[in-house]
Amino acid sequence: MKFSQKIEQCNLSPIRKFHPYAVEAEAKGRKIYHLNIGQPDIETPREFFDAIQNFQSSVLAYAPSPGIPEYLESVRQYYHGLGIELESGDILATNGGSEALQIVLQCILDEGDEVLIPEPFYPNYNTFTRLAGGVVHPIPTSAEEGFFYGDRARIEAEITPKTRAILITNPGNPTGTILSPEATRMIADVARDHNLFIIADEVYREFVYSDQRIVSLAEFPDVVENVVIIDSISKRFSACGARIGALISRNKELIGQALKVCQGRLCSSTLDQLGAAALYEAGPAYFAAQKEEYHRRRDTVMRKLREIPGVVCKCPEGAFYLMVKLPVDDADAFQKWLLTDFEDHGDTVMFAPGEQFYGTPGKGRSEIRIAYVLKQEDLERAMDLLALGIQAYHARKQ
């Protein structure tokens, strides 16, 4: 049977592709410490479950394709609190931030069109771009420079006649980098001056570990036609399984085109939207506690990494990921070996190998992404296992 070239050009997620090896390792009785997937262990606010349990209708009906009014209003009020004024018609409920991005790319890309993305980037960006007929055009960065890309000349050098959009994540996944207000304004200027969409994945907005404020691209009134915001409850409220996000833009024509896709997939989950609306009732104390906990975890990871010879890593400023250059030739092979051949007192560790976080062939082979989403004692043990694994991996060749 023949498959499309679009799907053939996609890869399995480096975050999930080692699952079969993990199953085999667990069948042998090994405990795996998961640093590979951004699944928070922070408790989901009780408001989500209460809203669903209090659902009284005798029929679980389709929700409106744009989203239920309660959810759209909760999102609108959240942005009002950030000083960003939206109309309910500027927001479309989606099945997670992932679907929001898929819909945008389907609306703006023709075959061969390019999306500029600073690398390393979330690998599903490549999958979604490919399936929409487009191509990721990477903006190169390096671990040695701390994955810096906030330079106008560097970005404009990559723009071609096929460029349709710039896609950024702020704070960054997988790097944890954040853009300064000045750099954010500069990227908005580039998008405006070159008539490009700027797609801003801002789902980690609450996770910043310095005094620097994250400036949303939605704050700039002169680029409202260019800006698309990808949002989600998954990380903000530790509610990944609910799969509720939002596509946000004040470009009325784009929203109108996107609504065609929303109507084609009928609706996002009625119950999960009700739960998501209730989540926005969580107060500042919830976010403060989350931030404090992840700050501790980040510091633990960095302290442990500094003890491993040959590691290159800049301390991340936001989100709950970091990209690490290891003293190994092939992080993919190293990860497989950790699951098939390595254990310490019955324990081993998983991470996400870095090569597929890049668009430039051959880059990232020695890098990994760590998601520091484990509780403190587990994170300590996981980092010890990484250090022991590197030692044992090199010793086997001697």
Rank of each mutant, 00 (worst) to 15 (best):
residue 191 A to K: 03
residue 346 G to F: 15
residue 220 F to Q: 05
residue 63 A to Y: 01
residue 227 V to P: 02
residue 315 C to H: 04
residue 274 L to M: 12
residue 144 E to L: 11
residue 54 N to Q: 14
residue 325 K to S: 15
residue 283 G to W: 00
residue 174 P to E: 14
residue 185 R to T: 00
residue 311 V to H: 07
residue 240 C to T: 08
residue 53 Q to S: 15
residue 342 F to A: 05
residue 53 Q to V: 13
residue 190 V to I: 15
residue 378 D to Y: 02
residue 196 L to P: 01
residue 18 F to E: 00
residue 315 C to M: 06
residue 277 A to Y: 04
residue 9 Q to G: 13
residue 285 A to D: 15
residue 317 E to I: 03
residue 215 V to P: 05
residue 51 A to S: 14
residue 134 G to A: 06
residue 63 A to W: 00
residue 347 D to C: 12
residue 394 H to I: 02
residue 315 C to G: 03
residue 131 L to Y: 07
residue 151 D to C: 02
residue 119 E to Y: 05
residue 353 P to L: 02
residue 110 D to S: 15
residue 252 K to P: 06
residue 60 L to C: 11
residue 84 I to F: 10
residue 107 C to D: 11
residue 143 A to S: 15
residue 133 G to H: 09
residue 43 E to K: 15
residue 390 I to Q: 13
residue 28 K to L: 05
residue 55 F to T: 09
residue 326 L to I: 02
residue 246 A to M: 02
residue 271 L to P: 13
residue 330 D to R: 02
residue 118 P to K: 00
residue 373 V to Y: 10
residue 182 E to T: 12
residue 20 P to G: 11
residue 120 P to W: 05
residue 256 G to L: 08
residue 203 V to F: 00
residue 356 Q to V: 03
residue 326 L to P: 04
residue 241 G to N: 15
residue 67 G to R: 01
residue 327 P to W: 12
residue 285 A to T: 15
residue 80 H to C: 09
residue 398 Q to M: 11
residue 336 K to E: 11
residue 189 D to V: 04
residue 170 N to V: 04
residue 361 P to T: 04
residue 241 G to Q: 15
residue 213 R to P: 07
residue 293 E to K: 12
residue 307 E to A: 15
residue 52 I to H: 01
residue 174 P to S: 14
residue 65 S to L: 08
residue 198 I to P: 00
residue 354 G to H: 03
residue 162 K to Q: 13
residue 254 L to P: 04
residue 325 K to L: 02
residue 166 I to D: 03
residue 237 F to V: 06
residue 373 V to S: 11
residue 121 F to D: 10
residue 1 M to N: 06
residue 203 V to Q: 01
residue 329 D to W: 04
residue 394 H to C: 06
residue 17 K to W: 08
residue 127 T to F: 06
residue 322 L to T: 14
residue 150 G to L: 06
residue 296 R to P: 05
residue 317 E to N: 12
residue 82 L to K: 14
residue 303 R to N: 08
residue 283 G to L: 12
residue 348 T to L: 11
residue 219 E to W: 07
residue 313 C to R: 00
residue 8 E to A: 12
residue 388 L to F: 11
residue 43 E to G: 05
residue 332 D to I: 02
residue 91 I to P: 08
residue 85 E to V: 11
residue 283 G to Y: 07
residue 161 P to S: 12
residue 379 L to P: 07
residue 346 G to C: 11
residue 108 I to S: 09
residue 107 C to G: 09
residue 199 I to P: 00
residue 287 F to M: 07
residue 208 V to G: 04
residue 96 G to N: 09
residue 46 R to C: 08
residue 216 S to K: 05
residue 257 Q to K: 15
residue 211 D to V: 07
residue 184 T to I: 01
residue 42 I to N: 08
residue 27 A to R: 15
residue 2 K to E: 12
residue 64 P to E: 04
residue 23 V to T: 11
residue 337 W to D: 12
